[in-house]
Write a protein that binds this DNA or RNA. Structure first.
Lengths: 217, 217
DNA sequence: GGCAAACACGAGTGATCACTCGCGTTTTTC
DNA sequence: GAAAAACGCGAGTGATCACTCGTGTTTGCC
């Protein structure tokens, strides 16, 4: 009612120590979420993983959901920052194989370094707020993919373009799981290459280009 | 110790009513697992969905895990029965597009009719026993896919064949999610067709056949 | 140095969940 | 038709979990 405290109910001043604790707690939460999933993870387990008391955890987060939300938001920002430049106009003009490299590689790298991301964004067990964020991200990426597809195949109907973009994204998600499951090293690299081959062969006909890739290996 | 009760600790005689209750409980469990996931589903919620008291539920299942296991086992049997004939030698000799129809369609149909299957087999939240079953199923399907691939491209190394089979399966799983998300009807059919197109274009080069499919639509 | 605010703790609290128990009802068996 | 066995119930029980609170410690500021 009084116009002063408009929308900061918590004008809490954080000390450097507090910021460190938050980062430490989020790291611990990432590990535990990753290992057990959101629902099966207890807040006490997160606190224990962070070598901190439950009370300390609740000094920085109002509830369990808020931990996942903050973690998700930070990952989302990090991802947008690291990957935002992939869908630039100049990259959009690249020939298909190179464009695949430019778009796929950073996405793969991000998910390899942050396996929590998939765990949080994937399960139907996550609270509503995270699901919303995920939907927004998904819609954004899908729009980008549609734009690219529209650039390579201008004659497509909107429905066809949407379906192809969805399928492209689904293939990527499926392949991403495989890549993460593969042991780091040459095997993972080969899996990534295979995934790109799939996408290339699927999308090549759109551009009217015949498939010129030889059988793998 | 006494040699008589060798390995039936429960020589329980079931009446017809009991069998009906079990089926009813499993159906209810399927709906609730599907909606909320395994961990977030309470046994009381299953009983309520089945219009039955919690005590009645525990007359037929020793614990929550057993419900998921029984459900998973029944689905697995149903699936093997309905789909076991897909990988027959005569189907294996079919040209690629027809063989894709024969293998993909029943798998899609099964998952459309039993969406719980994916929900149970997918989450890392499920208890160990289901995960084992899933691994076994996965390994079996993968072996079948490898066999098919070996038939189409005999010259491949074992590692390459394994990688391609894995990728094929991953593509299918990703596409399956899309298909289930699409509203039943022409849109779903189009998505299925698109998924087959992906697989066809990916696997065609293995057979040395050039891709002859025109751009979709 | 002294005061206030932020930080840290961990036993405690209420809610929820998986699961049990005692008792009443229906079905099978002889 | 009566004993036995299977079925059905729902309040109750112990464990676990998300979250709190009272108290003590550290940090920033004058």
């Amino acid at each position: 009612m009084s116009g002063d405290v408009s929308e900061e109910p918590k004008p809490r001043r954080r000390q450097a120590r507090g910021e460190r604790r938050i980062a430490q707690l989020l790291q611990a939460a990432a590990r535990v979420f990753c290992a057990s999933g959101y629902t099966a993870t207890s807040t006490n387990a997160i606190a224990r993983e962070a070598s901190v008391s439950p009370g300390t955890l609740y000094q920085y987060f109002p509830n369990k959901e808020a931990i996942a939300i903050e973690l998700g938001e930070r990952l989302l920002n990090e991802m947008r920052e690291a990957h935002g430049q992939a869908f630039t106009p100049e990259n959009l003009a690249l020939p298909l194989p190179e464009m695949l490299d430019v778009v796929v590689d950073p996405l793969i790298a991000f998910n390899c370094e942050n396996p929590v991301f998939l765990a949080l964004m994937h399960g139907s067990e996550v609270p509503g707020r995270i699901a919303e964020e995920h939907d927004a991200l998904h819609a954004g990426l899908l729009a980008s993919v549609q734009e690219v597809i529209g650039h390579y195949a201008p004659g497509l109907s909107a429905a066809d373009r949407a379906r192809i973009a969805n399928m492209t994204f689904a293939i990527f998600k499926g392949g991403l799981g495989l890549v993460l499951a593969a042991p780091e090293g040459p095997e993972r690299d080969a899996t990534v290459a295979e995934l790109k081959a799939v996408l290339l062969r699927y999308l090549c006909p759109l551009a009217g280009t015949p498939v010129t890739t030889p059988p793998p290996r």
